[in-house]
Write a protein that binds this DNA or RNA. Structure first.
Ligand code: FES
Ligand code: FES
Lengths: 147, 147
DNA sequence: ATAATAAAAGATATATTTGTCTTTTATTGT
DNA sequence: ACAATAAAAGACAAATATATCTTTTATTAT
């Protein structure tokens, strides 16, 4: 569905939503272990989300690391996808036409449009902190370390 | 959502379902123009679907080309995705965990599982010939040549 | 101030996907 | 049989995604 980059980003954000705050920052080592992702590659992905858009906060140096503000934790997955410039994965045409439109729909459009509404609805109303809350259930996981 | 390869494959199959038969075969040139895809790349993709699995039929030489049998036209999109080995795009974990399971679900699982059922349902019941029928509506398109 | 720390930045490497081009093989119409 | 045709096969090229490693910069604790 999504690219590895996007998957790592979402997992990282959920972990940060659950475990970080302004006075408890998370280092890249802990984070990449927790979400089972390649360390340096994940660092690059996080950088994209710290600079312009300021979704992730970070500070260098001792006791530094990454964290989410309460404001950031309220952002929806859809917002995150928009920042990652990958929302088109869902909103684009399922057959790859350059535009998903009602004027000139593809043969799948009528059916897919209904599902798209639900997908976008789910992503739009699901906040990072709501997903973090799911992790209170001990069976819910965010890595592959259980196998 | 899908890779370019998959998109081209689906568009090609829909076109063949609509326009080909055992006594009206379609050449790669006509096909790649009709679905607006790179010719040689599309040829490679079609080959994958002709050999082992026999979804697409083809004959070389004059008046040769690609076509679908009536039987093949009845196959569902889900069946096609299975042949292309890309069904995991939908059935896999949306956060990229190695397995989508009820035992150890990811934080998105509860919500995504519902949508997944609908997605797989739609893909499973939509046959190539049903999609070809959609193209009888003149506004429905399968390429980008209208822009 | 200094040393330790951790992210930022940059360079590089590998793998995969996408795309093109040429040669070969199979089939058909003449 | 022969020439024309069209897919099959194979080699190659380019672009993108994924991943690693090193150096630099910013921050903090001492
Ligand atoms: S046009 Fe293809 S899904 Fe809307
Ligand atoms: S475990 Fe992630 S979607 Fe099912």
């Amino acid at each position: 569905m999504f690219s590895k980059s996007t998957e790592y980003a979402l997992r990282a954000l959920i972990y940060l939503a659950q475990n970080s705050s302004e006075d408890h920052k998370i280092g890249i080592v802990e984070l990449s272990v927790a979400i089972d992702s390649p360390k340096s590659f994940t660092a690059k992905i996080l950088q994209k989300l710290t600079h312009g858009n300021k979704l992730i906060s970070s500070v260098t140096g001792p006791s530094g690391g990454f964290y989410l503000t309460d404001q950031a934790k309220k952002k929806s997955l859809l917002k995150v996808l928009t920042l990652l410039d990958t929302e088109h994965m869902i909103s684009g045409c399922i057959l790859g036409l350059s535009e998903c439109s009602e004027i000139n729909p593809c043969p799948m459009h009528a059916d897919y449009a209904k599902i798209k509404v639900q997908l976008l609805g789910m992503l739009g109303q699901k906040s990072l902190e709501a997903l973090a809350r799911e992790m209170n259930d001990p069976k819910v996981v965010i890595n592959n370390n259980n196998r």
